[in-house]
Design a binder for these strands. Structure first.
Lengths: 333, 333
DNA sequence: ATTTAGCAGTCGTAAAATAAGAGTGCTAAG
DNA sequence: CTTAGCACTCTTATTTTACGACTGCTAAAT
């Protein structure tokens, strides 16, 4: 259990370090709290023994440890009011409520990155649990043909195919009709099985060049199913503004993870509320923190995550995310 | 006019510098060419006077100037045979010729980035000169509705709308029917004008809550029109591997440009053949070179560009791009 | 029992000094 | 025209020095 004074010291150190990125000395603290630097130093030793503070080297000031940030977030942090300007920027996006939810979210995370200088990412749910709504084709000029696969939850995957000369539009239409007749309502994660068991045996009867077409739809279904998550980043380069990422090696490590689907998938969240993961808790890199939340608006689910250095303005970020969450609607979890 | 020996020296220096990223000394050159280092030094002075070589400081070795690279690309470079391994990787993608062209290109640039360690980008054409093929809706579960705008060249823009309770699916269908009746075939760049002149005056007669729906389609059309270019990057982080980008400031400058639509648009190419832009010619940054080409496959047009440091393996990159171009088909320009 | 002043001691950082090495330009001879 | 040789320039790495920022500890003060 921390004394009131210890809490004040820890709070001051965390907030000041977040602002300046420099270790905080006992002198700096004692200018704020009314006691001598020696007293502060004694307390600092206690806080360090509790693993809440760290030193870079023997005679440096203190910086918060991972556990220190954690304690700050859980116990000391106060919600930060958003500035009128920031509210205004976001309001402009939410006003137009007829918009597509994904658009709204994408636009709002652009703003979030702009006003926080952190990186933001949305992970939409995968289409795995969707069912086929229908397949549709639109013949285009030349021998091109637009094919669309549409799921019951509104996923769309489209391809423009160049028809070889030995396949007519009619053949394609027959294939599509067959797929629609036999597969509508099938869950995507078993659709290729179904395609094989129901469609493959009969397609030969109706369609001449059936193999190529069969393979095309097989591929299209695979793609829409395997597109694990729809990922959208904003402000990726913001990390380059942070002094702790002045080292190209660190940037490389992080950016490589951003490009790696498996790492990005890890960011997905399923807990309720707004959750803060500091450093190693983020599962991404010991040098970053992630503030994230899951959303579910009439069945459209996903995760919004704000990624910044551990030295992140947690209070601001949490308020922002809270504001966005309450504005996109949905069950408030 | 350069003597044969001068050409050899320049060629060696460019290629060696590309390999090592270190200034090349006269000694290094004379080990390759059969004459003394003093002779080389004399020639180096001439080449420097012609602005083909540069020095970092008084007693450093020479590095190619922008003009030096230019001369190398135009006169000295020999096409480099691709390794069997690289051919194999790309072949795997081109084999499946039934695929969507955009998919093929996207996949091939991933490979290009992988085997070159440079950054690759495709810029698909904008939809500006497309005409409306049709608008389509698919009612989904709940009060959601999928709307799709399809152009004659196969662009698709889709949105999932949450219908407010005072608008029925029937109203949406009437709106869509009206738009299809009046606007099919209209070029996208004037479609919102047409929407205003033809649809707006009559929509009120048929549809009750017409304003919201009108605005929704107005927005959708704006978006598909304004989506200037479809941009797809691969291997963005490869720049971090280049020694000349060991400086976070340079990385920041470049990556910020990559995120800026206007800068990226500049990359679009309309000249024939495969073109090399060195340093300031790239219009992107003095520190990078771009090798790019325009493609046109049955009306699907765009640009493929490979972006690397000036110290780029031009021979390899040009061969690669040539190989890709001949494999995606289209009029060979 | 807690707080504080004072001071010795630690460590980082920046600037200055030193040394070594790489490579050039020039001169004079081949 | 080419080459050997050498003086000179400049970079880079290493060491030295000096300084300043802070802490930890001790002993006195509250």
């Amino acid at each position: 259990m921390l004394s009131e004074r210890q809490k004040n010291i820890l709070k001051y150190i965390v907030e000041e370090y977040i602002k300046t990125a420099r270790p905080i000395s006992s002198n700096a603290v004692c200018e704020k709290l009314e006691c001598s630097s020696a007293t502060i130093r004694n307390e600092m030793v206690h806080l360090e023994n509790m693993d809440l503070l760290e030193k870079n080297h023997f005679a440096s000031g203190r910086i918060p440890s991972e556990k220190g940030y954690r304690y700050y977030v859980d116990n000391l942090m106060q919600p930060k009011h958003m500035t009128g300007e920031d509210v205004l920027k976001l309001q402009r996006i939410f006003e137009n409520n007829a918009l597509d939810l994904n658009d709204t979210i994408k636009r709002s995370i652009e703003i979030v990155s702009e006003i926080t200088n952190y990186t933001t990412v949305v992970l939409g749910n995968s289409a795995k649990d969707n069912c086929l709504k229908k397949v549709e084709i639109v013949p285009l000029e030349g021998n091109k043909i637009l094919t669309m696969v549409i799921t019951d939850k509104g996923f769309v995957e489209h391809k423009t195919l160049f028809l070889p000369k030995n396949i007519s539009v009619e053949e394609v239409r027959k294939t599509v009709d067959l797929i629609n007749k036999l597969l509508i309502g099938t869950p995507l994660d078993s659709i290729n099985e179904q395609l094989e068991y129901s469609v493959k045996p009969v397609i030969g009867k109706y369609v001449r060049q059936h193999e190529l077409l069969y393979n095309t739809f097989y591929d299209a279904f695979s793609e829409i199913t395997n597109k694990e998550e729809r990922v959208h980043f904003a402000g990726r380069t913001n990390f380059l503004k942070q002094p702790e990422f002045n080292d190209v090696e660190k940037v490389k490590e992080l950016f490589t993870k951003f490009e790696d689907e498996n790492c990005v998938k890890e960011i997905a969240e399923d807990k309720k509320g707004i959750n803060v993961y500091v450093g190693s808790d983020s599962e991404l890199s010991d040098d970053v923190s992630i503030v994230k939340t899951h959303y579910n608006v009439d069945g459209e689910e996903g995760t919004i995550a704000i990624i910044g250095p551990k030295r992140m303005e947690y209070d601001k970020v949490v308020s922002l995310l809270d504001y966005i969450k309450s504005n996109i609607g949905g069950d408030y979890e």
